[in-house]
Amino acid sequence: MGVSRRDFLKISGSTLLLGPLAAPASADAQERESKTKGAKETRTICPYCSVGCGIVVHTKDGKVVNTEGDPDHPINEGTLCPKGASIVQMVKNDTRVLKPMYRAPGADSFKEVEWDWALDTIAKKVKETRDRTFKLTSKSKVKEKQPDGTDKEVEKDFTVNRTDAIAHVGSAALDNEECYLLQKMLRSWGLVYIEHQARI
């Protein structure tokens, strides 16, 4: 019978209660236990490569106090690589952008702006660019059957309902639901230049 790390902890935990029979826990294990004692456990999946390892995030008072491999996860079985083991630094990080920023034409720096202003301005730019460049029709070459039965290439106007003035890339770093929403939104605006990491 295999004993998972979690089972092992449970067993050793109950053994500890028995007192003298238990071996003393290592300093490392003690430190981790003190960090995670009473913490909330939230399960997540690693945001780096595509193996899909499970991670447990321990939080106290809304702050991350520890992250570690999910011992119940059938793929990683509690283990993590250096990247997965570092995800705490995604949130405990001095270089995260904390406010929307704007760079004016020709400016040499970003300045902080309010969300509402940023999104209002972008929405207006999307509309202004789209309305000005929207193509109801476009020319395409197609093969057409001729009376003598042969195919001939002809150029014709077809309905396309799109804008060719706005492009988009990204992202494989988004959740499925976000990817779906994103393609839905972009296509409603008429974009066809939609690409992301999968192409490169």
């Binding site: 999946i45 193996v51 991350v64 995604m90 949130v91 034409p105 301005t121 972008i122 959740d175 499925n176």
Partner: peptide, 26 residues
């Protein structure tokens, strides 16, 4: 920078543990 007329909006998003949703592995 003076020669570059591109307006840039930098919008900060939340990391994977600050939201909910699904991802599909390989």
């Amino acid at each position: 920078p003076k020669d570059i007329q591109t307006e840039v909006f930098m919008l900060p998003c939340a990391s994977s543990i600050e939201k909910e949703g699904s991802i599909t592995n390989s």
